[in-house]
Amino acid sequence: MRELNNTIKSGLKISLIITIIVFLIILFLTTDSRTWHALKSINGKYLVYVILLNILSWIWSGIRYSILIQGIEGAKLNLLEALQIHLSYYFAASITPTSAGGEPLEIYLLSKKNIKVGQATALSLFRYVINTLTFALASPLIIYFYSYLFPQNIIRKLVQYSAILFLMVVGLFLFALFKPRPIIRLLSYVLIKLRKIPFLRKIHPFKILRVVNKTVRDFHNTLWSFLKEKKLTILGFFLFNLLSWITYFLIAPVLMSAFNLQVNYISVVLVQVPIFFMMFYVPSPGGSGAIEILLSLAFAPFVPKYILGIFIILWRTLTHYLTLLVGAIVLVYILGIKNW
């Protein structure tokens, strides 16, 4: 628990430092006398709509989780529990490089709901692949058919880089699906070699082999069960996942309306898709720094320069940092204040 706390605290600190530096740079480059006048004349009701849309995206994500869990025989997750896991996952993913901390915490929390570790791992990977696959398919199509939305060549290049990384992940996913034995041998070999680590030193090698074999088998069987028998579950997950992201992407154009700007909602929604696809592979915690810069480029055609900095800060605060705060509170509640 102490190592988890240290990881969370250091990741949160790095994320905040990077974000503050980028916020200051963006403000320095975009702010003038008109900025404060625009901020004073902002329409407050749209800020309420932004917060409600963000909460609605959480709810769709929670329903998405509940549907996925129903694919496991004997497992059940109500909406409140699903929301807790989603928000905790978001918090952990947002303060670790390339969101690497989200999945281990997600697997841990699912395992506490009487779901086997192998099954929880399969669910986590399945959620990641379907979620990322949606962006991987949509991003090139949007860039091709709506190329006028992306005059900056850097975004196209970064999408190509993200697509290559995603194909590598899909390759590993397919390998684990069709060839579980090499995975078992590799994990067993690594864990036995790591028996110098204190918490592994007392575990007998045969026990390690049994646990690895059982976990990988559960993982493999769960994946095949979903692909063969749970097609409606996959469809339901996909639809609510899509609904969650569409709701989230509507926040930016609604926030633009708060500044009394004329907004093309479809264009603003579409321009965000490739940006968030790249965020899956940005090394900084939660994409901090990179997402502000890339979205500054993406939103520049829709928002006047003197508003752009304030707009990015407001958008990031009412979406990412609001969710991060709620996720932190939920995680403290789940783990217990003493453990925290």
Rank of each mutant, 00 (worst) to 15 (best):
G44C: 06
A120L: 02
P104L: 10
S57C: 12
I115N: 06
Y65P: 02
V50C: 15
G101N: 02
E81R: 08
I17M: 07
S57I: 05
F23P: 08
I55R: 03
Y46P: 06
Y108H: 11
I18Y: 11
K112N: 09
S66M: 09
P97A: 03
L29D: 04
I67G: 01
I69N: 00
I21F: 09
S61R: 10
G62W: 00
E81C: 03
K40Y: 15
W36C: 00
T31N: 02
L87W: 02
E106L: 11
Q70I: 01
I67V: 13
L24Y: 11
G62I: 01
L27C: 14
L12K: 00
F28E: 04
G44H: 10
K113D: 01
A93I: 03
P104W: 11
I85Q: 09
L80Y: 08
I51D: 04
I69P: 00
I115L: 09
L27Q: 15
F23T: 04
Y89G: 01
I63E: 04
F91V: 07
L105P: 07
S111Q: 06
G118C: 08
Q70M: 04
R34S: 14
I18F: 09
N54G: 13
V50F: 02
Q70S: 12
K113A: 07
K113Q: 14
S15A: 15
D32K: 10
I55Y: 00
I63W: 13
K76E: 10
V48R: 02
I95E: 06
G62N: 01
L47F: 11
E81K: 13
I63Q: 04
I115A: 05
L79T: 12
L77N: 02
H37L: 14
P104E: 09
T19D: 09
Y49R: 02
